[in-house]
Nucleic acid binder design. Structure first.
Lengths: 157, 157
DNA sequence: TTGATAATGGAAACCATTACCAATAGGAGA
DNA sequence: TCTCCTATTGGTAATGGTTTCCATTATCAA
């Protein structure tokens, strides 16, 4: 009987065992970091955060684990155009906090928005169904991003 | 009076002059390559293609020019997750051939689709308006991609 | 408790992209 | 058409995020 009140084993344990993966300290530490922030962390960001509590965990493990988490579907990987990948937990323990991104091409700032999400998701689901059938794809994920200049960058020029 | 029948100066000349950029051999060659394909070329792909006709043109120029074309808005830059950027002409001389992408996470194959495009674009325009107002952004572009397993990769496992 | 093997970590390799700078060429004005 | 200013170019070297390699360690089913 799983616990989800913060005192028992984390809610993601099942995901691991179910796939035949071992639940290790580094993996728990990385999930811990990701679950405690709403920022878009790079691999190095995760490394630095994890490093505070577990200095022995190496950068290689961070990359490997993040890849694994993306494969499992626990984590989303994004590219905001600054040359490094960003990672976000796909959903929190209390449920999904689904959002899309607004990226400033001037300063690289990323804004999460949840407005219009319902309409977008509704259309996406419909599109997914159609595409799955037409191209015989098993669609697992989608990406929507808007690009532009934020207020600060607009006034600079 | 501009020519668009292939015998006169290319339709993109105005774009350059208007922005104060010079129209050079390398730039024309690169645009030429991009306008003759519907594939998603990497910088190296473009380099190799350009190199056949103009062996003197260097890879550095390819990168610089592609960046410029993206800035001007003549070219879109994509990331399909294979570690290299892909470039596509944003619209052909005959008009736009707007499409979105379906990416196989198994083999990396990318399928262009135009189905649902109208609905998607309609919703995106509405969303853009709302986001522009709420966050005071000047939105210039958007990205939609679906990820999944293609038929071949599904049957492999 | 034990053993098979999945997972780890440090260093080195990888590789797409960028920085640097001397040489070249576009094109507005004469 | 010619000249000059300066944007552009191209080769090389550097950059830096990510991956590879492999000997060591730790997980967990039996």
């Amino acid at each position: 009987m799983p616990f989800r009140d913060g005192t028992g084993p984390p809610w993601w344990q099942g995901k691991f065992r179910g796939c035949g993966y071992r639940l290790t300290i580094p993996r728990e530490a990385i999930l811990g970091v990701l679950s405690k922030t709403s920022k878009h962390l790079s691999a190095e960001d995760v490394y630095l955060a994890v490093h505070k509590a577990y200095p022995a965990i190496g950068l290689t493990t961070i990359y490997r684990t993040l890849d694994l988490l993306v494969q499992i579907g626990l984590v989303f990987k994004f590219d905001f155009g600054d040359g490094r990948a960003r990672y976000e937990l796909s959903e929190g323990p209390k449920g999904a906090s689904h959002h899309h991104h607004l990226v400033c091409t001037g300063c690289g700032r990323v804004i999460d928005y949840t407005d219009f999400i319902d309409e977008e998701v509704e259309l996406l689901n419909r599109t997914e169904k159609g595409l799955s059938k037409k191209f015989n794809f098993r669609i697992t994920n989608h990406l929507i991003q808007f690009y532009g200049l934020c207020d600060r960058c607009r006034s600079k020029k």
